[in-house]
Simulated scan of single mutants.
Amino acid sequence: MLPHILMRFVYPLPPSLFVSAISLISFASLTNAGFMEIKGKHMQYSKFLNVGSSSADKNIKAKKQLSSKTGMLIFYTPAFLAGLASFALFSDKGYLRFTLLRSALTIHFFKRIFEVLFIHKFSGGMDLEAAIIVSLSYFLSTVTMIYAQHLSKGLPEPLIDLKYVGILLFFMGISGSFYHHFLLSKLRSSKGDKLYKIPQGGLFGLVICPHYLFEVVGFVGVSCISQTFYALSFTFGTIFYLMGRSFATRSWYRSKFDDFPHNTKALIPYIF
């Protein structure tokens, strides 16, 4: 019953073992990463750099650290360039959904680079290994999503067309994410200020990671634009990862601030 309902919303799987395998691997790896965040094994960047590490591990990792700004540029730049290059590599004239998908992915990573360069105020560093892992994940997911969409040309269209709903959700997502990243940047009064504070404004009174919430909304939008199995598996994996990361973030704030609001959730207002 469920597969039959699902097929009303997505393209059939393309004749590609690579795309099918990566769909499963992407979902499994992101879901596992979210579970590891809950268990306390964090990706080593931002406030979680060296959290849970022994003194010996910290000394070793300190030798392989980047500045947060450099690390985040490594996160997003390859995926942005992949999206940009797809316009030169694939023509696919007349395939509106493909053009919309490539545009959404390119805009998403351009926005993230813009925030790194002009919005964020950084503290601490980033583990080189974490920077490489996240960068490869974004790059591979972007390339695979574009390739899966290219392969879907000529396949039967989904019975329910969601691409225009996807456009709306995508722009809601990047707008909300940008706004809350801007609020986070305003928490630090000066460039040298590295102290963490409890975020306020926007949806921060309801959830500690509204920027993650809107990231989810944006990727749900991308999935609706794409309507491929790979986009769907990546989005669900991303949701589970961000649930884990936001849960860990809430726990971190509660451990650092005695006045952290008890009713503030991690990711989903009033629920989680």
Rank of each mutant, 00 (worst) to 15 (best):
M7N: 12
P15G: 08
F18C: 12
N32V: 05
G34Y: 02
G34I: 04
F35R: 13
Y45P: 05
K47Q: 15
F48E: 08
G52K: 02
S53A: 05
A56K: 14
D57C: 00
K61L: 09
K64S: 06
T70G: 01
M72N: 04
Y76D: 01
Y76I: 02
T77S: 14
A82P: 02
A82C: 06
G83I: 00
L84C: 05
K93C: 05
G94Y: 08
G94V: 11
F109N: 10
E115L: 13
F118G: 12
S123L: 03
G124H: 11
L128S: 10
A130F: 04
A131P: 14
V134H: 03
S135T: 11
Y147G: 08
H150I: 06
G154D: 09
P158D: 08
P158S: 10
I160N: 05
D161S: 11
K163A: 01
Y164V: 04
G166K: 00
I167L: 07
L168P: 03
L169M: 07
F171R: 02
L187H: 04
K197F: 15
I198W: 07
G205L: 03
L206K: 13
P210K: 03
H211A: 10
V216G: 01
V220N: 00
Q227M: 00
L232T: 04
L232C: 03
Y241V: 04
Y241S: 02
R245K: 02
S246W: 01
I268H: 10
P269M: 12
P269A: 12
F272L: 14
